[in-house]
Amino acid sequence: METILSVRSLKKEYGSRGTRFAALHDVDLEVQKGEFLAVMGPSGSGKTTLLNLMSTIDQATAGEIYIDGRNLTRMKNGDLAKLRRNKIGFVFQDFNLLDNMTIMDNIALPLALNKANHKEILAAVEELAAFFGLTDQLHKYPYQLSGGQKQRAAVTRALITKPSVVFADEPTGALDTKASTELLDCLRGLKPKYGTTVIMVTHDAFCASFSDRVMFLKDGTLHARLDSSGSRKDFYQKILEMLAAMGGITNERL
């Protein structure tokens, strides 16, 4: 298996001199191609910070991040834009679709700005939309869709450029259980079909149980890791136990 993303002794500090606070320190991480990784941890543990750093949204204080062998921390703005366009997809909790465009245009946006051929764009959009069950929704506007459909549209947009890595920040945060399950099943189905790596931040053990591997963050460092044995139910139990052992936040869910 080849490594798609690696993080070396990453550090991120917030605040100015005197009131410095390290949100992340000494984080080392390797992610294999096609892996579905979940990052968990209590609020304030730095999971979103880690995701923002890996996805080029934010800049690290120290340490290195490599995507496909290229060092992010030394890149200029123009190169970063190119990297975002070709290698990275984003999914957010609140969908971030453009309200004044149809789902079709929303999904096609990243491709359209890559100056791809019109027919190729249409074909690519239709293929992915079929995979996510959005074929009938393509000509509607975001406000006409349910939350689950909107999030699937957002994932489709993230995938349209065939990125190496998709970053998802609490993708199921605004969805109910059924829509969450559908979405997570789709994310899991990406690996055999497109070989896409997915890195997902979540605080929900149920969500995390869909992944191949869970990394637990606590107070800005990687605290533990759990690998899926294949059975989701066992994995879910193990994650819950781990959270409880960490001074769990999800005890109320038991």
């Binding site: 703005n77 190119k82 975002r84 990275i88 971030n96 990243p110 700005l113």
Partner: peptide, 13 residues
């Protein structure tokens, strides 16, 4: 927000 989405879609500033 819209500008942010464009930036994430990989469009240069």
């Amino acid at each position: 927000k819209e500008i942010g989405i464009y930036a994430l879609a990989g469009i240069s500033n």
